[in-house]
Structure formats: C-alpha cells, structure tokens
Design a binder for these strands. Structure first.
Lengths: 209, 209
DNA sequence: GTCTATATTTCGATAGAC
DNA sequence: GTCTATCGAAATATAGAC
C-alpha cells in the first residue's frame, strides 16, 4: 500500500470525521433544537470522544452554523428545475417534485431550518436578507411573466411561493404527526400519492390547467 | 374595600401569577424550544423570582406541558366553523379564516406546537393518537361526503387537510422569514391579502369553484 | 490527530427565613 | 405566597499526555 504524504492523509481524515460529525449533528439539532442538543450526544452518535468535536469545530455554534449553511445550499439547488421551464405546469410541477424529494431525503435538514427560522434566524439572518431575498425576487418576476402570458391565473406570486414552501416542507417538519395519523412511515406509494396530490391541488389552484 | 376570604384571595393570586408565567413561558418556549428555554428567562419575562415558578409549576416539564395543552385546545376550537357548513366553499373557507386568525393572534402557540411535533411529540403523543386522529377521521368523512355530492373535485382528503394546516401555520411558524422578505411586520391589509390568497388558491385547487 | 481528566459555567430544583 | 442563597447535576470547553 502506497504511503500518502502526511498532509494529504490528514486532510482525508479531517474530511471523513467532519462528515461523520455533521451527519450526527444534523440529526441531533433537528430533534432537539440548538439549545436542546448536547455535544456529548452528537459525539456519541458520531462514535467519537467529545473532545474531538471541539478539535474539528471549536464551538457548538460553529458546528451548528455549518449544518445550517449546508442545508441552505441544498435548498437553493432545488430551484434550478423551475427556471428553464416553458410554463407553470412544468416549472412549478418540477419545483414541487424537487422539494418533496428533499423533504423525503433530508427531513432533518428541513427541521433544522425550521428551528433556525423560528428562533428568529440568529445564524442565517444575513442569508435571508441577501441570497433568499434575491432568489425570491427572481421567482416572483418569473411568475409574473407567466401570468402576463396568460399561462396561469393572476395569483399573488409571494403567497404562491409561501404555499409551495409550506406544503412541501410540512411533510418533513411535521412528518411525525403525519406518520402518527398514517399509523406508520410513508411507503414509496404514499410519497407518490402525496406528491401527486400537492401538484394537482396547487396547479389547479393557480389556474395552470 | 371589602376583604375577601383568605382562600379566595389566594386563588385569585394563583390565577393571576399562573397567567403571567404561562404567557412568558409560551414566548420563551416558542423562541428557544424546550431545551433552549431556561426557567430564569421565563421568570425574568414574567417579572417573578425564579423560585416562584417552581412554586406554581414544580418542574420545567410541568410548565411546558400546560403550555402545549392550552394551545391544543385553541386548535380544536377552530374546527367548529367547518362543521355545519353546507359545502366546501363555506366550510373550508371558514376554516382557513379561523386558522389564519390563530396564526396572527397566537404565533407563539403555533411555534410551540411545531417544536413539540418536530421533537417527536414526547408530551402530546397520546393526544395525536386519540383526539387528533378522531378529529381527522371526522373531517375526512365530511370531505368525502362533499366529494360524493359533487361539490368539489375528488382530491385526497388527508392531503387536503395537511395542505390546510401547512399553509395557514406557515404564516406563524415562518413569520420571521416572511417578515424579512416583506421588509417588515404584516399590516392589516397584508393579513387580508394573505388570507384571500390562501382561500382563493386552495378553493380553486379543490375544484370548489 | 486522539483521548482522559478537569476547569468553569449554567441550569433545574430546593431549603428555609420572612 | 415571596424571595435569597445554594445545592447538585449537566453542559461547554480546555489542558495536556500520548
């Protein structure tokens, strides 16, 4: 087995452990919030001594900040599907699909985001005011164009966006409540039905068909 | 000024202080979650020494439980409007109105509920399985009847209910995000517009008009 | 880069005088 | 019923040997 340069090996180890810690942290922060999460619990879940967490992330807040930022990146990517679409049926349909997939694959990330916003966004307030606002403005323009072209009813674009966020994220953030009423976890078919229901109701609701 | 019997006076004092504490607790629990909230902070906000909180509510969990239960009562009341309605336009329209009013008047209560559910409902799991499930079953039946009577499109009733909860509660739970994008708090007109938008999109979405 | 032991702070809860 | 003082537990963070 060939030896790697020491610095490169260290970088690999660092990357590996950071990933372990971030995965554990996302889960713990999602289920307990920032205040309820403990470094000990995250360390146990990552299978590392607590002191090692502080080696990689000096403070609890540094770790939390990284978790929130990573989530935000995923969220922004979901919007790409909406942009080159010819109209709302394809564009908003694809956006709902992407957001429902994220709720399914990253339920903990969605919850951490919800915690952060409910906490008045102490960590990501600047992102809200810059990146998210710019993103929103762009999509409002897109929706306004579709309305002007007669491709959908004249709904308020902002409130449509809020409805899209609310309905799709609800399946992640309130997943426990839904699973309780459903008497068990969602199957593939359940997710398909949920996604179809959301698409149908919203697309009809905005007069896209 | 007439003297009251000692026991009656004590009851009055108790009721007054409990209200003070519960109001402060709702706010603190909403903004920090159970783990992030501290008895000291609640005491300061209520204007009482910390020890007095433990006099009225022996443990932090007792206090939290009361806050969550009080919220649950308000939620259930909102459903009354839906029941004696002749059809979905009146029934679901009134339910949206009631839920939007709650989001406006009790934003902190909504957040505490969201925290609790995201926390996997350690305190109100039994309510979910009994009261909420029974409530949901009843409303599913009602919606199925409206569908059978041709008063709305054949949507999935459960997913319609999730959409109603998600969209209306979003204005409370994610109020900070919305206000940031809105560059300020909602005015009367903003709330009116939001409520109208939600009503229009959902009622059209379920084919009620 | 790892890990045990520990310093320091903060929190929930209580004791006990008033 | 109120309030100061404080206990004991638990949390964040660090020191220092390996």
């Amino acid at each position: 087995m060939t030896e790697l340069p020491r610095s490169q090996r260290r970088t690999e180890i660092r990357q590996h452990n950071e990933t372990l810690i971030l995965q554990a942290a996302e889960k713990v922060f999602a289920e307990a919030g920032f205040g309820g999460a403990t470094m000990q619990l995250i360390a146990d879940m990552a299978g590392l001594p607590k002191a090692n967490l502080h080696y990689y992330f000096p403070t609890k807040e540094d770790l939390y900040r990284r978790v929130v930022q990573d989530i935000f990146e995923i969220w922004l990517h979901a919007a790409d599907s909406m942009d080159q679409a010819p109209g709302p049926i394809e564009g908003i349909g694809a956006y709902i699909q992407a957001k429902m997939d994220i709720s399914r694959r990253h339920p903990n990330g969605s919850k951490v985001w919800a915690f952060e916003v409910m906490h008045r966004a102490p960590v990501i307030q600047d992102y809200l005011e810059t990146t998210l606002r710019a993103w929103t403005t762009g999509r409002v323009r897109l929706i306004e164009r579709w309305i002007a072209e007669g491709k959908m009813a004249p709904v308020d674009p902002e409130h449509l966006l809020y409805m899209l966020w609310a309905t799709t994220q609800h399946y992640a953030d309130f997943g426990h409540q839904i699973e309780t009423l459903n008497s068990g976890p969602f199957s593939d078919a359940d997710w398909q039905k949920a996604t179809d229901s959301v698409k149908t109701m919203i697309l009809r609701g905005i007069g896209a068909f």
